[in-house]
Amino acid sequence: MAELGQLVDAIEERSDALNSLGYRVRFDLTDGGSILVDATGGKVDVSTVEGGEADTVMKLSSDNLLKLVQGKLNPMIAFSTGRLKVQGSQGVAMKLAGLLDG
């Protein structure tokens, strides 16, 4: 199980890629905790919050989130195999997947 701090650091390392997202995405981790990525206002703010307001919520394990951010897990494969569940805007999820995949 990846630690929240490790996940926040990994996401912040990708903040240049996520800068153009323009939305709030919350990752609800199935093994505990939530991470909010706020890419509105021209900068990326990553924080650990419970239930923060978001355009899209993605549910997955902390290990799968780490693999996703590191480019070791394809977002489309994760979604199609049930390792990643999306609530809210599918378009935002697709845009995020494209930015992480790049």
Rank of each mutant, 00 (worst) to 15 (best):
L100R: 04
V8S: 00
E13K: 12
E3T: 10
K72Y: 05
G42Y: 12
K72D: 14
L96K: 06
A17N: 11
R24W: 06
L65Q: 03
R24I: 07
R14Q: 13
K85L: 15
L18G: 02
G41P: 05
T81V: 14
L65K: 07
V25C: 01
D45S: 01
M58E: 04
K67Y: 03
E12Q: 15
A97M: 05
V86A: 04
G41S: 11
Q90A: 15
L99Q: 10
K59H: 15
E3F: 10
V25F: 02
D38G: 08
S34M: 10
G22L: 02
T30N: 06
A54I: 02
Q90M: 15
P75R: 07
V46R: 03
A78Y: 07
Q70H: 13
D45M: 01
M76S: 13
K95C: 06
V69D: 02
G41N: 09
T30A: 13
D101N: 13
L68Y: 05
L60A: 05
G71H: 12
M1W: 07
G42R: 12
G91R: 14
L7M: 06
A10T: 03
L29C: 08
G33N: 02
G42D: 13
L100A: 02
M58N: 02
S89I: 09
L99G: 02
V69N: 02
V92G: 01
S34E: 13
Q87Y: 13
S15L: 03
D101C: 10
R14K: 14
G32Y: 08
D28F: 08
G91V: 15
S47H: 04
N64E: 12
I77T: 15
R14C: 08
A54E: 05
